[in-house]
Amino acid sequence: MKIKEVKELLNAEILNGIDQLEEEVYSACGSDLMSDVLAFVKHQGLLLTGLNNLQVVRTADMMDIRAIVFVRGKKPDEEIINLAKRKDMIVMTTEEPLYSACGKLYSAGLKK
């Protein structure tokens, strides 16, 4: 699924990586617990989370995750976005809660 489709399905605002809308992600995971992301996630391109701190970007970096969607209207601060920029990571925010955001992407064909 292209990043621009993720953006449209979730009515999301892109906070970093507006020039990367054509990028493809092939899998996704949703979690507020970075411990679990580190322990259980395999090759995922997209992380959906309601957690809003620097460690989300660091965890995503370690896991080679390409894009982060902050759910429930969470807006990462400048420091978080700047770190994502340095890591060349796409960041967006949506008003959708985690459950429905994951459901919409899954229904549209972005499986695990």
């Binding site: 411990s35 580190l38 322990a39 989370t49 957690l51 460690q55 965890t59």
Partner: peptide, 15 residues
């Protein structure tokens, strides 16, 4: 609250 402390760290290192 910061998303850690689930007791997965050491087992995950081992993994």
């Amino acid at each position: 609250e910061m998303g850690f402390g689930a007791g997965m760290g050491l087992p995950n290192i081992k993994k």
